[in-house]
Amino acid sequence: MTIVRSLVLFVLAAVFEIGGAWLVWQGWREHRGAAWIAAGILALAAYGFAATFQPDAHFGRILAAYGGVFVAGSLLWGVVMDGFRPDWWDLAGAAICLVGVSVIMYAPRG
């Protein structure tokens, strides 16, 4: 159950961070206004808290692993929200990052 909780928290953190950055982008670059930017700032703040609920207590490990989730999540966000079409290299890079997440977070330690 700990791994499932950790994975859910990584997905939640990705939605907050990627979504927050996307909202700021939309507000500023796409001229949607201050409300979009404010919503983005709130989402980014929520991201900052999401990682603190991870079962592992090591900040460096959590943030390093989250980096891989961010890479894959950003590509997925672009597909869903902006019609981005990743190429084979994008997908291969994201897969490598997710393997790294698995090694960093879920390798047996002892």
Rank of each mutant, 00 (worst) to 15 (best):
E17P: 06
V79Y: 12
S6N: 10
G100L: 07
V103K: 01
F49Y: 12
W25Q: 14
L7I: 13
L75T: 13
F59M: 12
G48S: 08
A94W: 04
D90Y: 06
W89N: 07
G73H: 08
G78Q: 11
F49I: 10
F70E: 02
I104L: 11
D87W: 08
A35G: 03
A35M: 07
F53I: 01
A45K: 02
F49D: 07
Q54A: 04
V103C: 06
G27Q: 09
G33M: 09
Y47V: 00
I18E: 05
D56Y: 09
L63P: 01
A39I: 03
A64E: 03
V24T: 06
G60M: 06
T2S: 11
L9F: 09
A107D: 00
F10D: 13
A94Y: 01
D90L: 01
G27W: 06
A72H: 07
D56M: 06
A65I: 04
E30G: 07
F84E: 11
G20R: 00
D56C: 00
M81K: 12
A50K: 01
F53Q: 14
F59V: 13
G48P: 11
L7N: 08
W22T: 09
V69Q: 05
E30T: 05
A46Q: 07
H31Y: 12
V4D: 05
H58T: 03
A14I: 03
P86W: 08
Y47S: 09
V11E: 04
G67M: 05
